[in-house]
Design a protein around this nucleic acid. Structure first.
Lengths: 298, 298
DNA sequence: TCGCTGTCATGCGTCTACGGCATGGCAGGC
DNA sequence: GCCTGCCATGCCGTAGACGCATGACAGCGA
C-alpha cells in the first residue's frame, strides 16, 4: 500500500476514469491501469467496477478512499511542516544564557530574530554556565550562551562552541577613588579595597573564573542587582568587578577602569550547541543574529 | 515520501539504530542506510544525528515522526477495514424485497445471515418491484428481491438477476365452496366468484403480473392484510389469489387450490443486483443464504 | 597508546519491477 | 455495421533498489 499508488487511486476515483487520471498524472493509460490492478491484487478486493465509460468505485473502493485521502492529506501536512521548519515559519527556539549576557547581547539577538521570524516560538532561560550546559545536553535547550575563563576550557567533548567574544572585566570605583583617573590598574593596587559582590554564588563563579589565583579580595557587601552594586560603589562603600557586557555606559558618578593586561581578567563567551548534532535551522539563524549583536556591541 | 520509507524511518527512530532496524526489517544495514539517506534528500533536512553508537532524531526528524506514525496507523486501519469487509466482520447490507417475500423468504435469509455475521449492519426495505429496482440502480440498496411474470421480463440491461424460485399462485376458497375438494382448478371456473383483493395497488400488480390477459375478476372486497383476506374467504365472502410464499400452511377452514398448468399463474422471483457490478462480499454471502432459505421452503 | 569493536556510509554488480509502446477486447452510438 | 472510446495485457528497456564488500570514524579496554 504505497502512498504513490494511493495517489493514483485517488485520482482515478475522482475522475472516474483511468484514462483521464493518466492524462492528469502524466502517465500512460496502461501504467495507471496496472497501478490499480496491483492495488486490487494487494488489497485482495476489486476497487472499481469497469463500466463501458470509465470506472466506478466499489464498496471496498469507497472504504479505501477515505483512508487514502487521510493518508495523503497527512503526508501533505508533513511536507508543509518540514518546509515551515526549514523556512522558520514555525517551530521554536529555546535559548539559555548567563545573567550578564541577558543584559544586552542575547536580548538584542532575540529581538532581531523575532523581527525576522515572528512565527517561531521563543523562550529564554537565565542561568549559570554549569546549569545551562546541563539543560543543553539534556535536550531542554537548543542553544546556550555561556562563559568560561581561558584557562578553564569548557567540556568540548559534548559541546560545539561558537566563540562570540572575549569579555573584559572592569573595575568600578567611585569618582573620588584614588585611582579614578587611571586608565588601567593592577589588581594588587586594590588589595586594600573592599569588594562589593553581586550575589554570593554568582560572584563566586565570576571571581573564581576570571581573577588570577592567589588574589583574595575582601568582600564586605553583597548587592544582588547591578544597580545596587554600582550604587554602593558610587557611595564610596568599595569597588566592584563589573563585566563589560553589563555596563553599556559608565554612570557619571563612578569610573570604570581596565585591568592591566598581565592580570588579564577575561571571560570567553560562547554560544554552545550539542556536539556533533545537526543544528535546527532556527538555531543556525540565531547564531548569525548573535554574531551581529556581538558586532553591534563594539 | 513513500509509506515504505516511512516504515523504515519509524523503525530506525524506535530503535535509534540503523543496524538494529535493518535486522528487524530483514534488510541489510546498507539498504536501510540508503533508505534514510534518500528520505533525508527528499525532505531536504537531516532526520537523524549520527552518533558513535546509533542515531538520534533531529528536530526535523521528530517533526516527521509524528506524521509518519499517523500515516502508518491509518494505513493499518485501511488494511483492517478492508479485511473486515471481506470477512464480513464489518460493513452493512441493505436489502429490498416485495411484500410476499418479506413474509417468510427474506426474513429467514436475513436471520441466518445475522447469525453468521452479527457485525454486519442489516437493513430491509419493503416495496414493490419498480420502486425496489429504482433504489437498486440509484445505489440505495445492495440487493433487492423482486418478482415478475414470465412474459414480462425485467430490464436485464441494468440488472444481474439471480433466479430464486417460481412462485405459484393458489386460489383460496372456503371449505364449503363447490370446488373445495379439487386439487386444481381452471380460472374460468371462478369467473362468477367474487375476488377478495389485498390492497388496491399491490393487488393490481399481483393480478396484472400473474393472470392471463382477458381474465377480469370481480372485486367486491379489499382486505389489507393476509389474515383479513383469508378470514373473508373463510367466511364465504369470496375467493382470493394467494401467493404460495404468503401461506405456509392452509388454515383449517379453507382450501388452497392449485391452478391448472395452462393457466400458469406464476411469478418468477429473483434477487437482483446492479448489472456488471462486482458484488460486495456481504451481498454474495446473502445470496447463498437466500438460496438456502429457498430450498428450506420446499 | 594501540588495536578491537561496533556503527554508519558508499562503490559496485545484479535483478526486479515499473513505465511506455503496441495491440486486443468490448460496448455504445451514429 | 462500422467507428470510437475505454480498459487490459504482452513485450521490452531502463532506472532504482538491494546485497556484498569495504572504508571511515569513534569509543573502549588491554
Amino acid at each position: 500500500m504505497e502512498s504513490h499508488a494511493l495517489h493514483v487511486f485517488r485520482t482515478v476515483a475522482e475522475l472516474s476514469s483511468i484514462t483521464a487520471a493518466a492524462r492528469t498524472l502524466r502517465y500512460t493509460q496502461s501504467a495507471v491501469s496496472r497501478q490499480i490492478a496491483a492495488l486490487e491484487a494487494e488489497t485482495g478486493a476489486p476497487l472499481f467496477d469497469r463500466l463501458p465509460r470509465g470506472v466506478a468505485l466499489t464498496e471496498e473502493g469507497r472504504c479505501l478512499l477515505g483512508h487514502a485521502e487521510a493518508v495523503l492529506d497527512r503526508l501533505a501536512a508533513a511536507r508543509r511542516d518540514l518546509t515551515a521548519l526549514r523556512d522558520l515559519t514555525a517551530g521554536r527556539l529555546r535559548v539559555g544564557a548567563f545573567p550578564t549576557a541577558v543584559a544586552a547581547l542575547v536580548p538584542r539577538a532575540l529581538s532581531a530574530f523575532r523581527a525576522a521570524h515572528p512565527h517561531v516560538a521563543l523562550s529564554l532561560v537565565e542561568g549559570l554556565t554549569p546549569g545551562l550546559l546541563d539543560r543543553l545536553v539534556a535536550g531542554d535547550a537548543d542553544v546556550v550562551v555561556v562563559s568560561a575563563a581561558p584557562d578553564q576550557p569548557l567540556d568540548g567533548d559534548r559541546l560545539d562552541l561558537h566563540h562570540l567574544l572575549d569579555e573584559a572585566l572592569l573595575v568600578a570605583v567611585p569618582r573620588t577613588h584614588r585611582l579614578a583617573h587611571r586608565r588601567t590598574v593592577r589588581l594588587r593596587e586594590l588589595a586594600d579595597d573592599a569588594f562589593i559582590a553581586g550575589s554570593a554564588i554568582a560572584e563566586e563563579t565570576l571571581l573564581r573564573a576570571t581573577l588570577p589565583a592567589g588574589f583574595r579580595p575582601r568582600i564586605d557587601i553583597v548587592a544582588a542587582e547591578w544597580t545596587g552594586k554600582l550604587g554602593c560603589v558610587a557611595a564610596g562603600l568599595g569597588v566592584a568587578l563589573v563585566p563589560a557586557l553589563a555596563v553599556r555606559a559608565a554612570p557619571p558618578d563612578l569610573a570604570l577602569l581596565r585591568l592591566h593586561p598581565d592580570d588579564a581578567a577575561v571571560r570567553r563567551v560562547y554560544a554552545a550547541t550539542p556536539r556533533n548534532r545537526s543544528l535546527p535551522p532556527a538555531v543556525q539563524r540565531f547564531l548569525t543574529h548573535l554574531d551581529e549583536a556581538t558586532a553591534g556591541l563594539g
